[in-house]
């Protein structure tokens, strides 16, 4: 008997890049996060071959969830083809053997920065959001120990102060992204940097959402069929961005979240933020076989 027969053959890395103990720890924290929706769970954020701030939190959760049969989609600001999204996607496929896709309907795991796809996610899909700042109380309470105590006491009154001052200053709520939302009637969370447009998509959704901040070492979750209610004043209703009437100049679709493209003449054109939806719409118009699934918004309204 030699030492070689007793040990595993040498490998460059373990399956899914993270070592087994790191994944075990993450899974425990993910289960905890599901058990207490919206509550931030601290975890030992590992080194991954990417700088902090580029989606290391999301990446670690995705790496933990992956298996060879997974189909993985990564978007950055709604686009599948940005450098960051493409590199994360190819890295994920390289270390796990999972298949890459751009199609929301096909994917089993979706990692995203800034957007939730416009097509409805199903119960068999998991959404992983990369979070830069997981603490909704940071603007009103710089001391994080005190902020944790405030979470424990559900002492969220001060969050309305942010909204109050936005209305006083600008006449309406200006919170463009990371709109503080009450999860399951108990914990207030920052829904990543997703726009207001995407917040209603989390409410009573069929899919599981993980939100993970690698630098801040916190992860939290919105399990399927959980209430996610944006904070509002009783006399000032929640409003999504005013994009319902905008039309994408490339695909011709109307009623979705758009990117504004400034033009040389000082005006602007709009194009779909969810690039894959636009691509599928253009393919359909050209007569190719591209299926667009049911969307959260129909004609600019949540359905």
């Amino acid at each position: 008997m030699t030492i070689a027969t007793l040990t595993k053959p040498w490998e460059a890395m373990s399956y899914g890049f993270l070592d087994a103990s790191a994944k075990r720890e993450l899974r425990r924290k993910m289960l905890k996060a599901i058990a207490v929706p919206g509550c931030q769970m601290p975890y030992a954020s590992r080194e991954v071959p990417m700088a902090r701030g580029w989606g290391t939190g999301g990446l670690q959760v995705t790496l933990t969830l992956l298996r060879p049969s997974s189909v993985v989609k990564v978007i950055d600001q709604g686009a599948d083809d940005s450098v960051n999204a493409a590199s994360i996607r190819s890295f994920l496929s390289k270390v796990s053997g999972a298949r890459e896709t751009w199609d929301t309907l096909e994917a089993t795991i979706l990692q995203s920065r800034h957007r939730i796809p416009e097509e409805r996610l199903r119960a068999d899909q998991v959404l992983v959001l990369q979070v830069p700042n997981p603490e909704p109380l940071r603007p009103v309470e710089p001391n994080m120990s005190v902020a944790r105590q405030m979470h424990a006491d559900a002492d969220y009154g001060r969050l309305w102060l942010i909204l109050y001052e936005q209305i006083v200053r600008s006449g309406r709520v200006m919170q463009g992204a990371a709109y503080p939302s009450l999860v399951n009637g108990r914990h207030v969370m920052t829904p990543s940097p997703i726009p207001r447009w995407d917040v209603p998509k989390l409410h009573m959704a069929q899919h599981l959402t993980f939100l993970s901040a690698g630098r801040e070492k916190r992860l939290y979750a919105v399990p399927p069929f959980t209430r996610v209610e944006p904070l509002v004043f009783s006399d000032v209703p929640f409003q999504v961005e005013d994009h319902a009437a905008l039309t994408c100049h490339r695909s011709g679709l109307t009623g979705y979240f758009m990117n504004e493209i400034p033009q040389g003449d000082g005006g602007s054109q709009f194009e779909l933020s969810d690039s894959n939806l636009g691509i599928k719409a253009i393919r359909q118009a050209e007569g190719a076989d591209a299926r667009i699934g049911p969307t959260w918004y129909e004609n600019g309204k949540t359905s």
């Binding site: 009154g157 102060l161 004043f233 009783s234 006399d235």
Partner: peptide, 18 residues
């Protein structure tokens, strides 16, 4: 807003009232 914070802690949630 500083004054409103007090009222918010006490549970007031109407902008006009605040």
């Amino acid at each position: 807003g500083n004054v409103a914070e007090r009222l918010l802690i006490a549970g007031e949630r109407s902008f006009a009232a605040l």
